[in-house]
Amino acid sequence: MNLFNLCVFGKLVEETEGAFGTIFTYVICALGAAGVSVLLQPAIVRGAVSVSLGASGAIFGLFMVSVLARISWDPRRLLEGLILGWFVVRQVLSEAQAQVAGGLTIGGLQVGHLAHLGGALAGVLLVLALKSVPDPDAGGKA
């Protein structure tokens, strides 16, 4: 499922941000996911050391960036953003609910809901940070 979502949402981010922007976004969101996981998830779960491993946190960041990068007054992009946004909001709320409920286990391994939420947060913060940077093509216009 991660590979499918990476292909879909990675391509959507690539359409607006280019190949380098997609790689940069993925890495920043992966670091955000790992950081939140390390800071907020207990290191020891049921007597065993807990580690966070996987691409899904970074992919949640791509979810957020793919939606936020499409927000504009262009009707086509606005419609794409609304449709994608509905999917992303449902996914993020589902992750938050699962975390509050104690989490899910797949194949005996605990799902890193905090990492998913951390990746999504990193994506939002990245877009907000980059929107504050002046566009050199705009000739100094905001």
Rank of each mutant, 00 (worst) to 15 (best):
G47H: 09
L62G: 01
A43Y: 08
G18Q: 11
L31S: 05
G32F: 03
L62W: 00
G57Y: 01
A34H: 11
F60N: 05
A30N: 10
R46S: 15
A55P: 11
I59E: 11
S37K: 01
T16L: 04
A55N: 14
G18M: 13
Y26C: 12
G32L: 05
G35K: 01
I28A: 07
G54L: 01
V27S: 07
L53D: 11
V45W: 12
I59L: 09
F20C: 08
S50C: 11
I23H: 03
T25L: 06
L62N: 04
G57N: 03
E17M: 14
A34C: 13
S37P: 02
G32W: 00
Y26M: 10
A58W: 02
P42R: 15
G47W: 10
G47E: 08
P42K: 12
V36N: 04
S52D: 02
L31D: 00
A30L: 14
V38L: 13
L39Y: 05
C29Q: 05
T25Q: 01
R46C: 15
A58N: 01
L39S: 07
Q41H: 07
G21I: 05
Y26F: 13
G61S: 06
V51Q: 11
V45A: 08
C29N: 03
V45R: 14
A19H: 09
Q41V: 08
L40P: 09
R46P: 00
I44R: 15
A30M: 15
T25I: 01
V38G: 04
G47M: 03
V51S: 15
V36T: 11
V36F: 07
G57A: 04
V49H: 09
G47K: 13
T22V: 08
I44Q: 12
C29A: 13
G32S: 11
V51E: 12
G61R: 04
G35F: 01
A34W: 12
A33F: 00
G57D: 00
A30G: 12
L31P: 04
A55L: 11
Y26H: 08
G54R: 02
A33W: 03
I23L: 14
V38R: 06
L31E: 01
L31C: 13
R46M: 10
T22I: 00
L40G: 10
V45S: 09
E17G: 12
A34P: 02
V49E: 07
T22H: 04
L31N: 00
G35I: 03
A58S: 12
G47T: 10
C29D: 04
I59A: 09
F20Y: 07
G35D: 02
S50I: 02
V36C: 09
G18L: 10
A48W: 08
I28R: 00
P42Q: 10
A30Q: 07
P42N: 13
I44V: 13
Q41P: 01
I59M: 08
A33I: 00
F20K: 09
A48T: 06
T16W: 03
V45F: 11
S50M: 07
A58H: 04
A33Y: 00
T22E: 03
T22D: 06
P42L: 08
V49Q: 05
L53A: 10
C29L: 05
F24V: 04
S37G: 08
I28D: 09
P42D: 07
L62T: 06
F24E: 01
L39C: 14
L31W: 02
G21F: 00
L53E: 06
